[in-house]
Design a protein around this nucleic acid. Structure first.
Length: 257
DNA sequence: ATGGCTAATTGGATTAGA
């Protein structure tokens, strides 16, 4: 089973790129972030015509997450992160796909830091860690995939010094991500490629992509039940060079189940 | 440190992203 995560930065603006990528790479499960579309503006017909079922949680203007399944019946289990009824931002959706629980997340960016947006990021992260602990306790084979908006280590940024004060790289953000790993979640890309330079994002400015001035901020975490099933990981970085493309590239894993 | 680029909105600039 091939599972991908892709921050599309506007699903309707990105539809031609998304459909082209789906046709070329045929992932079985796809987690999408930053739909930037209200619930009733999700392009279900085009996704369906491409051979995918979908569950999604939209929001006007910002955020929005979805899970697609290629010929798979997705059973939605949640469309929000538990723990705060006041939080109305669409940043988490979850479904089972062929016996694997898939959590799709769009963690808050948090800039500028410090400030209320960074506070919200850390609160959201805290709730996520608490919920991720309950998932581990359930002993269900689970993948947590999405845009974590965290640069985990120096190896994950083209120029770490430039990001030291940024919400994506501040110690609090890195520590929270590290806590997930300490709990038992495995960073799939790093499990197979511990020392490679891997980027999943290149900003739109200053020819970042052609200079390979990138960041690794899109991650797929595996629960221990899946530790022996990981066979391959990758980033479809060529997609970042297409016309009308997202600033993120699709990132994926292959499982032997 | 700044500015640069892209998308959404009922707009004619502003906000947010990272």
């Amino acid at each position: 089973m091939k599972i991908a995560t892709y921050n599309v930065n506007g699903i309707n603006a990105r539809l031609p790129v998304l459909l082209q990528w789906l046709a070329e790479t045929t992932p079985d499960v796809v987690c999408l972030q930053e739909l930037k579309a209200p619930q009733d503006k999700f392009p279900l017909q085009a996704i369906s015509d491409a051979g995918y079922s979908a569950v999604w949680k939209g929001q006007k203007s910002w955020n929005g997450v979805a899970i697609l399944g290629r010929g798979i019946e997705l059973q939605a289990t949640r469309d929000a992160l538990p723990g705060d009824d006041q939080d109305d931002q669409s940043r988490y959706i979850e479904a089972t796909a062929n016996g694997v629980l898939i959590g799709c997340l769009y963690l808050p960016n948090g800039n500028p830091a410090p400030g209320p947006k960074f506070d919200y990021k850390l609160r959201w992260f805290d709730r996520f860690i608490g919920y991720a602990a309950s998932l581990l306790a359930s002993n269900t084979p689970t993948v947590l995939a999405g845009d974590f908006n965290v640069i985990p280590t120096n190896l994950d940024a083209y120029n770490p010094d430039r990001w030291l004060e940024d919400a994506l790289f501040r110690p609090e953000s890195r520590a929270a991500f590290g806590q997930l790993l300490t709990m038992g979640w495995q960073d799939a890309a790093r499990k197979l490629h511990p020392a490679d330079r891997i980027y999943t994002y290149w900003d739109y400015f200053r020819n970042a992509y052609s200079r390979n001035a990138g960041l690794r901020i899109d991650h797929l975490l595996l629960s221990p039940e899946l530790a022996n099933d990981l066979v391959e990981t990758g980033v479809d970085r060529a997609v970042r060079g297409w016309e009308k493309t997202s600033d993120h590239a699709p990132t994926w894993i292959k499982l032997s189940r």
